[in-house]
Design a binder for these strands. Structure first.
Lengths: 195, 195
DNA sequence: CCTCCAGTAGATCGATCGGTCTATGTGGAA
DNA sequence: TTCCACATAGACCGATCGATCTACTGGAGG
């Protein structure tokens, strides 16, 4: 509950960027949402908005990576992917399809925001590494695990974009079914055939 | 070479949105890039920028759908996906990873731009339909074909986002390999094992 | 006590945003 | 030729952008 200005700014940046994208998120919105003084931005992020966005993207990437790693170490990879997709589905519905992935938003923020793009790339690589480690733990060769992990990220992120556009969780459900089929091909028959 | 103001505006909108996103694309950039008078926007798009973006998204969706449908009717689905991924890879490299998918950009343009979001959803549905038709032609059940088609779109779009962020074509190559594995599971062994 | 400084509140800056306006040019139909 | 719809060039509007600035507040450390 301490939540200093810096932490509030990062949290608000993640929230607003998920909803509106980088360029559509103004500092005024950011300050109002985080109940923070304008000067506090430049106190903690000398580079201004660009710095804040980059740090928010890094933070969002770490949060998601922690979540995925947590679910992975207590279950099979497919169950972890399932849990992630279920959580995304619930989040989308709860917010009336208003929120997307902050890392994707940062990745597409344009050519002028190099720091944000690099932060997004770093987050993607982190997720891929975490997933690939789980796949190798299941016996997959290193190269196969890395490729598969990268594609799992692609499939989920793409489904999230489609789901927002269509205002439907169907793309996430399709991703669940198809990723299950793909993983079954690599890892053989394993659970996760619930409803 | 006729290329009236309306056509030039739509083409420029597609180009600039691919690079910068909707909100980061200003009317001034648009007019300069399309060499068009400011008033011409409101002549052809009474709703202003929002109308133009929506029409550009529709046009981009149709163009891509035509491309995909063309490649699909002269080859197996996997070969068509291969051709699409190869084209995306070359485009990314030729532009130094500056361009993405205009439909994705429109889909993430925010809550205020409803028309653009709907245009993006329409484009996604069109691609899914086109792909699903090809899969049913190969003998897949309707429901399976639709689900698989939706996921193929997700996987490709997600790979494109990752590729831009990382400035690497690796995600597209991963998508190729994994989509091939997935389709092989449904359709059995079919060509496309070149390098 | 006083000092110091992160935090707050808000005025203000130049630049740019999307949109509207006038003036002028142009090419085809009546 | 006359006419008119369209295209162009560019000034202009209020609003908002990111960023800088001053003035004030409150609590920790000497």
């Amino acid at each position: 509950m301490t939540a200093g200005p810096r932490e509030r700014l990062v949290d608000s940046a993640i929230t607003l960027i998920r909803e509106r994208g980088v360029h559509a998120t103004g500092l005024t919105d950011l300050l109002e949402h985080s109940r923070t003084a304008r000067a506090s931005i430049y106190q903690h992020f000398p580079g201004g908005k660009a710095d804040l966005i980059a740090e928010a993207t890094h933070a969002a990437g770490r949060q998601m990576d922690t979540f995925v790693a947590g679910v992975l170490e207590s279950g099979a990879p497919l169950d972890a992917i399932d849990a992630l997709l279920r959580w995304l589905r619930r989040t989308l519905r709860d917010t009336d399809f208003a929120v997307g992935c902050p890392v994707v938003a940062a990745a597409l923020s344009g050519a002028d925001t190099t720091a944000a793009r690099e932060a997004a790339a770093s987050a993607f690589r982190g997720w891929q590494r975490t997933l690939a480690a789980a796949f190798t733990r299941e016996g997959l060769p290193e190269a196969t695990a890395v490729s598969l992990a990268g594609f799992v990220v692609s499939g989920i992120e793409g489904a999230l974009v489609q789901a927002r556009a269509m205002r439907s969780v169907q793309p996430l459900d399709d991703a669940r079914v198809q990723l299950a089929a793909l993983l079954r091909g690599y890892l053989g028959e394993t659970g996760s055939d619930d409803q």
